[in-house]
Design a protein around this nucleic acid. Sequence first.
DNA 1: CCTTTTACTTGACACGGTGTCAATTGACAT
DNA 2: ATGTCAATTGACACCGTGTCAAGTAAAAGG
Lengths: 197, 197
Amino acid sequence: MSSPISETKVRILQACLKLLVASEGKDVRMSDIAKEAGVSRQALYLHFATRVDLLIATTLYLDEVKGSDDRLVPSRTATSGLERLDAFVEAWANYIPEVYPVGKALLVMKDTDEAAATAWNKRMQDMREGCEAAVLALKKDGQLNTNLNEDKATDILWTLLSIRNWEQLTRDCGWSQAEYAKTLKALARKILLNESP
Amino acid sequence: MSSPISETKVRILQACLKLLVASEGKDVRMSDIAKEAGVSRQALYLHFATRVDLLIATTLYLDEVKGSDDRLVPSRTATSGLERLDAFVEAWANYIPEVYPVGKALLVMKDTDEAAATAWNKRMQDMREGCEAAVLALKKDGQLNTNLNEDKATDILWTLLSIRNWEQLTRDCGWSQAEYAKTLKALARKILLNESP
DNA sequence: CCTTTTACTTGACACGGTGTCAATTGACAT
DNA sequence: ATGTCAATTGACACCGTGTCAAGTAAAAGG
């Protein structure tokens, strides 16, 4: 908890971020990042032990830049369970495209790199907490579909909102971001809520 | 269309299959496969141009072995749209675990290899046709949710049934295969069908 | 029977990308 | 001046894929 974040370290993170965004998370080599940061390739290893470490650090840096925490405020301050669900889905849906490029880089490594998988899972676990909170709020209001217990409802919402689903719907299916957000809100309601009384 | 499939070619495919299944689709090198097949590494390249080519061929070989075509018969012979939807979801749900290990190997490459992406997309496109057929059958019966047009309904069903969702639910969430199949059938109905009249 | 063809082996090598190491430079502090 | 810190330079090891050339062994065919 300290190390006042050396100046070049930040330059490296910025360079990495820039390249990832530009390439949508694909094919960014250490040497590319070094060049972009105006620094030698070896300097990267002075600040980050491995490529995956750098990638992880970049996601954290991005969160910091974007102020990701503030994003969930409306969902946490929502009064009814339904409002909370809507707010959460909306917030997450709009968060995805902002972090996608750098998230994607980690996502790609997840299948082959232990550290990447761990870091990614942690992030997804955090997001899952949002799902759980929304589900619990619904339950409290007696609006949770009676066929679903909290865990299962959370599992489903969590899966529904996965980055890969967003990827498939917006990329492969050509949905606009607005369409995605709107449809997922509707879907979440339809699945989680009780039949209309 | 010919080349009576040399004997060693089959041995290679079997070896590849075996290793992929054993490793759940991870970390299978050309040299491993060669060793398993009792053949030199270079022999692989005599039969398959690249590793991805071999992987693709292995998926086709697996289909052949499993008789994947027969699997969709019940869904195609279903009379009502609802039956068809159920049968399709059921068939696909039970198909996934059988092809997962070898599919996973392709899936991993998809993000970085052009040929792998193309092959994978083709497979998923085939599966999408099943989704579309089910949706159209529902529509014909007047049971398709009136908020959804055919394309959108197909997009949703297709995404819902993705391998990555199966992966997340059965691996990360710990669902059993039976639970997965049952829940996805319910979900598909809930999303695609009209509100109960 | 000898020759060609075919399938496979052997061993060496290039390439790309990550990660390591040792020696060097330059700036700033004391 | 001296030491230290951050960065540079260039070389190198490692791994896995893919390539190449030369050799072997057995079947095919005159």
